[in-house]
């Protein structure tokens, strides 16, 4: 008779252990990056581009990569936003939310989300060869845009799905067109969710490496035109960490710390927004 309780106890211990293990894993990720990265992090790292001999352990920083990553993330987020808002509105307002059409669009986007970014990168590079576009900031921005569009649309879609039908109908009943309803009521209502979607996509854009590997190239300079090649943080980290020299590896850890801080800041910002949003709703 007591067997059923003993079994439950054992499994409960296992469950708590598993949960702790996940938290510990996250802890060692953040912890190891901070421990290894902090000593090598300096103002020079953030404010200078690589000087001669940087990759042999001499002076300079990763400003080129920080700038490149921000350019790519900002550019692609901007373009993606331009496509994503209309699509999210279209499948939620113009079409019936749960119509076959809308669900099919969602399925395609989910599948796209799952396509490995290396496939985007490889195919993107081939396409660039065909249309004659050189490895450049522009090419990187375009590929990353396509990479984050499904992320952004689905994140917005999840918020727009929750807009009550009554609200839309109320606006339509007042004689507003669907366009007015979509832009003035739905966008306004879901604005915090849209911003969260933007932050999530921005995070994905700044962190992805495989897609920009062969489309954006790499350079030690801060790009001055969108036709220049550009460095990115993930690739800079990859380059630096592959070095056999300890000092250079330390710079990789410092760069990883920079990227982690950016990502954490984005994550905290979007969480605070969501919290505020749900509070306002109640």
């Amino acid at each position: 008779m007591q067997g059923k309780f003993i079994e439950e106890k054992i499994f409960k211990v296992l469950m708590v252990f598993s949960t702790l293990l996940i938290i510990i894993a996250l802890g060692t990720i953040l912890g190891s990056i901070v421990v290894k990265g902090l000593p090598a992090l300096s103002w020079e790292m953030l404010s200078q581009t690589p000087k001669g001999g940087f990759y042999l352990g001499k002076s300079g920083g990763i400003l080129n990569a920080i700038a490149g990553s921000f350019y790519i993330a900002i550019g692609s987020t901007f373009f993606a936003l331009f496509v994503s808002i209309p699509v999210a509105l279209y499948i939620n307002i113009y079409r019936k939310k749960f119509s076959k059409y809308s669900n099919f669009v969602r399925l395609c986007l989910d599948v796209l989300w799952g396509v490995p970014s290396i496939v985007y990168g490889a195919l993107g590079f081939s396409l660039m060869l065909i249309i004659g576009l050189k490895t450049s900031l522009l090419a990187g921005i375009l590929i990353v845009t396509i990479l984050i569009i499904p992320v952004m649309i689905r994140a917005m879609d999840e918020v727009m799905k929750t807009v009550p039908k009554g609200l839309v109908e109320a606006s339509l009943a007042l004689g507003a067109t669907k366009a007015e309803t979509a832009l003035k009521v739905v966008v306004k209502q879901t604005l915090p969710g849209i911003v969260t979607a933007i932050l999530i996509s921005f995070g994905r854009a700044i962190g992805d490496a495989a897609s920009v590997m062969y489309t954006t190239g790499f350079t030690d300079n801060v790009p001055e035109s969108i036709m220049n090649q550009a460095a990115t943080l993930p690739l800079a980290i990859l380059n630096l960490v592959s070095s056999p020299i300890k000092e250079v590896q330390a710079k990789a850890y410092a760069s990883a710390l920079v990227l982690t801080i950016i990502i954490l800041a984005l994550s905290i910002a979007s969480r605070m927004l969501t919290k505020k949003y749900t509070k306002n709703k109640l």
Partner: peptide, 21 residues
């Protein structure tokens, strides 16, 4: 929130963690 943070970490960071730990 911790799991969400884990979800947002770029793969290169996981790679660095792999190398360090």
């Amino acid at each position: 929130p911790l799991i969400d943070i884990l979800a947002g970490i770029p793969s290169v960071i996981f790679g660095i963690w792999g190398i360090i730990v």
